[in-house]
Design a protein around this nucleic acid. Structure first.
Lengths: 134, 134
DNA sequence: ATGCGTGCAAACGATTTGCAACTTG
DNA sequence: CAAGTTGCAAATCGTTTGCACGCAT
């Protein structure tokens, strides 16, 4: 059950890491199909799931239509705007990193082993707030 | 567009609040269909979604098969065990609550307005860890 | 009365999967 | 070569939705 590095998998990972957005499988497929005409959507799904299970990318689910993926696995938060449906990255300073450690501690106190965490926030983004005023 | 308090909606909310688990729509429907034989699954879905949108219950998505709901909206964390597929509540003390406020602050600094947040952790629960050793 | 909510069943659509052919190690 | 991977298309199945009727306000 060892994984292989096929051209498709490498291309998918590279493409995902090359965008700042958080594309769905379909969106990533659309981005790639010009350069890789024979690529199939099923392959994109299979690889994104495998990479997410291995922790090499992040799976983001905001109860939108479909699941989004993030090639950046470094510590950061996500904010989802329910009006414009955009996902914002929120970078964190050292204070916040320390604080996140406290939350993990609250869970590890129970003896659970954390493989991955996802702090997701929803609301209205600053840009849409401004729009609503006008 | 005002919402009405139908018997079904009240029963759904009451049933969800009465269980300590985090049932899916189907599971909640199964719990209720003896007492409410004419209740339909579609109604359960519609009400759970409406209640979640209004912030009266929580929607939990762990990329399991389906979405789970939580009738407890008080501050607590969720831990999902990917082996036994159980969702654990993690209660937090005042220290952790204060700490969580720092994370919200990191987002509000951008001018975004947070309506709801969900801190979800995944891994292997203490019980499954023990099982794996034996 | 008005129009949101319900039950039922059909429709939807994002994701998964079976299979034969093809790579990778 | 053995076994994981791909492309294609069909299947899956959780969730949504159209409609006629019923109930809350």
């Amino acid at each position: 059950m060892q994984q292989r590095n096929t051209k498709q998998k490498l291309a998918i990972l590279e493409t995902l890491r090359g965008v700042k957005s958080h594309p769905t499988a379909q969106e990533l497929y659309d981005l790639m199909k010009d350069e890789y005409p024979k690529l199939s959507l099923g392959t994109v799904y299979r690889n994104l799931n495998q990479l997410a299970d291995l922790g090499q990318i992040l799976r983001l689910d905001f109860n939108d239509d479909s699941v989004h993926f993030d090639g950046d696995t470094s510590m950061h938060l996500h904010f989802y705007c329910k009006e414009c449906h955009q996902i914002y990255d929120v970078s964190v300073d050292q204070d916040v990193v320390n604080v996140a450690r406290v939350l993990r501690g609250a869970i590890e106190k129970y003896g659970h082993q954390i493989d991955m965490s996802n702090a997701m926030y929803q609301g209205v983004c600053s840009s849409c707030i401004r729009k609503n005023i006008n």
